[in-house]
Design a protein around this nucleic acid. Structure first.
Lengths: 203, 203
DNA sequence: CGATCCGTTGAGGTGCGTCAACGGGAGTGG
DNA sequence: CCACTCCCGTTGACGCACCTCAACGGATCG
């Protein structure tokens, strides 16, 4: 395994690859936060996902990436070359099952995001976003309550289908209602998780 | 293969399975149109996809369905039982690769849909929808220009993240601008595909 | 110390949702 | 064969959630 992998470090805001580039590499994030997004011709952006340590990037079966990837924080990643990986898959067919499981999981997440984008209000979107961040932090064994929120308002807005200003206003309102609070660094503390979770589901 | 399959016919509006049910079956549509959707507690609905002949349904790797499925027209489908399929997969590992390819393809479609839901206007959404319907009809060898649109305004709206009324108004406006025209049955003719495609991408 | 970027907040506008009324087609029963 | 009902689609009037435009303050950096 070791000889088909190479490491790489990205500074914040570096583009790892862009939509349409040949998808000859696969990455695994070991540290930091990244985002993947698509653009409309006039520049409107939809961020389709945020990626954290442990997540894979570029593992579709297509020949070109159909989205762009950019780092948000400093990021460390492992790079696998696709042809080598292909040989590995032929040697160990059980890995294919893992890949399929990962794709299935992503598909479920994508459907959640469609519900959010199509049918939730601004407040419900932000609440869902914070709950999701907190749960994902817990899943990878990081602190889930004062949760780290490394992305900017603009990135959060482009993920939730909102403007920067609306995103900021919702955060302010949640703070004012004592449901969340700012903490040193990029951390946000969830003061009333039940209320926040209820908001997220529109109840 | 033949002995693990059974056929089934659905009348319009029949529910095939609901969110949360154990996902022990997999289906392939041989005729008709279906939809898959998720609901929020208060009844808001997001339709996450429409399915046509040749499409598979319920092929995730999870143990329960995380969405509901309902027929739109009369539908014929083949049913596979999951445990049998599992045995088949172990005999023919190459099939896993096909499954992964399908999941990848769906993931790409889901990302397109996120761009649509998060960043497109009502008119861009409807234009994208019609182009998509037409292209998918062509892909399965059906007539792509007077294209069949079997779903109701309410279903289209819940797919595009719009209200019934807005959906209807956009259709009216496109008709009035001579970009589309109603045809007998559930067909819509695309009179100016270039303009419609340009609208879809927001240009 | 100016420049830049990000976040916040206010004021005002608008695209789309909501509410409502109406018409046509399909199914039903007298 | 004709009322009657129900459902769907359409259209108008109106309201509001969110977007746009704008100003400002704080942090970071050369």
């Amino acid at each position: 395994m070791a000889d088909i992998v190479s490491a790489r470090r990205l500074q914040p805001g570096e583009t790892l690859f862009v939509e349409g580039e040949p998808a000859d590499r696969l990455f695994n994030i070991t540290a930091g936060t990244m985002m993947v997004y698509r653009l409309l011709p006039d520049g409107r952006r939809q961020i389709t996902g945020f990626l954290f340590p442990g997540d894979f990037l570029g593992f579709g079966s297509e020949s070109v990436y159909h989205y762009s990837a950019e780092s948000i924080t400093v990021v460390d990643l492992c790079r696998f070359s696709r042809p080598e990986l292909q040989r590995l898959l032929e040697r160990f067919p059980a890995m294919e099952q893992r890949l399929f499981g990962m794709a299935s999981h992503e598909l479920a997440a994508a459907q959640d995001q469609m519900v959010l984008l199509g049918r939730k209000t601004a407040q419900e979107k932000v609440a869902s976003f914070l709950i999701m961040l907190s749960e994902r932090a817990a899943q990878r064994g990081q602190k889930s309550n004062p949760v780290s929120v490394p992305m900017s308002r603009s990135q959060i807005g482009d993920y939730l289908g909102l403007s920067i200003e609306t995103t900021s206003r919702v955060f302010s309102r949640l703070k004012q209602k004592k449901i969340i609070a700012r903490r040193p660094g990029d951390r946000i503390e969830i003061l009333d998780r039940d209320t926040l979770a209820a908001m997220a589901e529109g109840a």
